[in-house]
Amino acid sequence: MIRYALRYLNLMVLTLLVLSVVSFALAYWFPGDPLTNLSGIQEATPQTERFLAEKYATEHNLFVQYWHYMQLVFSGDWGVSFSSGLPLYDEITLALPATLELCAYAFLLSLIVGIPLGFIAGLKHYTGTDYTVLSLSVFSYSIPAFWLALILILIFCLQLGWLPLSGRINLLFDVPHQTGFIVIDILLSDIQNKSAALNDAFRHLVLPTISIALINTAITVRLARRSIIDVMSKGYIIAARSRGLTNNQILWKHGVRNTLLPILPLIAAQITTLITNAMVIETIFSWPGIGNWLIQAIYQRDYPAIRAGMLAVSSFVVILTVSIELITRLLDPTRDKNERGTI
């Protein structure tokens, strides 16, 4: 068991190492002076230049530079952005939780709606309910996420005026930043109208979450449906019936567990698509998340921002994916523990 965990940790560390090397190398691969790309300070005076050269060790060879770079990354000094001049670390820690909040809600929504719907469709498969669910799911995951967002905006914001168009919360509410998750921040803060603020935050959350969640829900429904159809036709279900267990007992005790265990890694693998979609949707809704920030950065050719943002997002995704894979492997009694670990 420990060997397993070590293997995965090994994998994670290796990947993070590669990512950090790439992020360092990008300073050289991006157009422009590498030192400028690393530090973010343009138009530096000669004195500042010497200071920076000292800090980033540009006089020495690449390995020393990389070592200095890693030290700076771990200490929180990620350089400064070209366009805003603010420290990158602060900007990223402001923007990343916003995206995470959106993704977390969308993921939860897709699980809560998708898995039961998939079960119902699978248990009644080849009937009317099943065909309806299947058609809906194929339509849903064929829609481009950004087009769906635009259509929803057209209908709900512009025609009907029910829901707000952009941003996370009405600017009249001044919610202090504590964790970056707006719902938690509202609950933790002490502004007067907490319920009004929460209501407003939810109204801002609805459209972006639905745009992202629809696609993942459709995929989850299909995975769950296929898994339960496979499980219900297996020998041990027939054997359980022959022992006289009730349908409910068979479904809940034997069916559900065996259905969910194989598809958990697949569901976790959708996190990447979720984040990609979230990044695009953020630009449409002007959601102050990391996707929007990165895309603005690239419009303005803000190279240090791109480097730092890329490192932050990809490290986060890798850590999350590997952890989920590790947890599922550890919790799953049916896996052969001697299998080689792969992501």
């Binding site: 290796l14 590669v18 791109i306 890329m310 792969t342 992501i343």
Partner: peptide
């Protein structure tokens, strides 16, 4: 090679696109 490619799969498409477009 396996490990590296597996980890490449974990990175969102858009991120790769942004990096390449920046380069």
């Amino acid at each position: 090679l396996n490990h590296l490619l597996d980890s490449l799969m974990a990175i969102p498409t858009l991120l790769i696109a942004i990096v390449i477009v920046a380069m």
